[in-house]
């Protein structure tokens, strides 16, 4: 078996830059509302896309399946809604506050969760997310089932009037692009190389002298903060923070989006988020059947396109996507 003549099997795909595709994606997103697509829908999808990208940073590049990521989406949502409505902070500061709140929660949850491997890690994140959910259900400032409604938008950075839908749209797009590029850079940084090594073979990374727990914690906190950025932005868009964003179903939805688009791909979570949000939007007339349709798509993806839509495309095109 090992003595057969050795030839290098299919040299790895030549390293091609993703920059043109990223530029193309931004251009398409930027013209969507001008083509008559409902801006509110695109903004919602962009927030979920950023949320899915943050989640994918963990599962796709560190190999950690968090089943409680809704807690970061929701925490930032409540934090920024409270900051904007009760404290009267400017929208950019409210978003920043929400992001930091989720990042801090990410450090705490990470410290507990990364001590466990595999399914135990996932279950720990789920359990902690449920605790957070019940806290928000009971806490006064979240207003329980009502949520925080009528979150003001105001002037972004003191000049951009985000009560105008199109201005708001481009602000949200800018936030999405910033978050997406930060994740892209993280994946392609020296830090990202170590994360990939941990995903591939953690004991080996340890034996090379890496204190892998610290890298996993840093990645977890970063992912939590970026999920928070998505949640905070989402609240400014919908002007409403509610329990929906902290429920476990939301944690499941982000798994679904990422799987449909392609785990561990750069563009997969974006594609997955747009597909799932579009389904919820345009199939709304089917009522509860949307969930059934989502379930069927999920099963189809797992059975037929294990790599997700973008993952399969990347395989056909023999390149990273």
């Amino acid at each position: 078996m090992t003595t057969t003549p050795i030839k290098p099997v299919s040299p790895a795909a030549p390293e091609r830059s993703e920059t043109p595709i990223i530029m193309g994606m931004i251009a398409v997103l930027a013209v969507l509302p001008l083509l008559g697509v409902y801006p509110y829908f695109v903004m919602q999808a962009l927030c979920f896309a950023l949320f899915a990208c943050a989640f994918n940073l963990l599962i796709g590049y560190v190999g950690l399946l968090s089943f409680g990521h809704a807690m970061f989406l929701g925490t930032a949502g409540y934090a920024s809604a409270h900051a904007a409505k009760v404290w009267g902070l400017a929208p950019e500061l409210s978003i920043l506050f929400g992001t930091l709140a989720s990042g801090a929660l990410g450090v705490l949850v990470g410290l507990i969760a990364i001590r466990r491997q595999g399914i135990y890690f996932s279950m720990t994140t789920l359990a902690l997310a449920q605790m957070i959910y019940f806290f928000y259900l009971q806490a006064k400032f979240t207003h329980g089932e009502d949520g925080i409604q009528g979150v003001p938008r105001g002037l972004f950075l003191g000049v951009l009037d985000i009560s105008k839908p199109l201005v708001l749209f481009y602000v949200v797009l800018a936030i999405f692009v910033a978050g997406f590029l930060l994740i892209y850079r993280t994946i392609n940084s020296p830090f990202g190389e170590i994360l990939k090594a941990i995903r591939e073979n953690e004991p080996r990374a340890i034996s090379l002298g890496y204190r892998t727990a610290r890298y996993k914690l840093a990645a977890f906190a970063l992912s939590a903060a970026l999920a928070g950025l998505a949640g905070a932005t989402k609240v400014i868009v919908s002007q409403n923070a509610s329990l929906t964003d902290v429920r476990w179903e939301m944690s499941g939805e982000v798994v679904l989006m990422t799987l449909v688009g392609g785990l561990g791909t750069i563009f997969g979570p974006v594609v997955g988020a747009f597909i799932i949000i579009a389904m919820q939007q345009y199939l709304a007339e089917f009522g509860q059947w949307v969930l059934v349709i989502q379930g069927v798509i999920f099963v189809a993806c797992v059975l037929a396109f294990r790599r997700g839509i973008v993952g399969e495309a990347a395989k056909v095109l023999r390149r990273n996507l």
Binding site: L182, R185, T186, N188, S189, P190, F191, G192, E193, L208, G209, Y210, R211, R214, Y215, A218, L222
Partner: peptide
């Protein structure tokens, strides 16, 4: 490893 404990996620590889 010789770069030490480095968490520079903002830097290009």
């Amino acid at each position: 490893r010789h770069r030490g404990d480095n968490f520079d996620f903002w830097r290009s590889k």
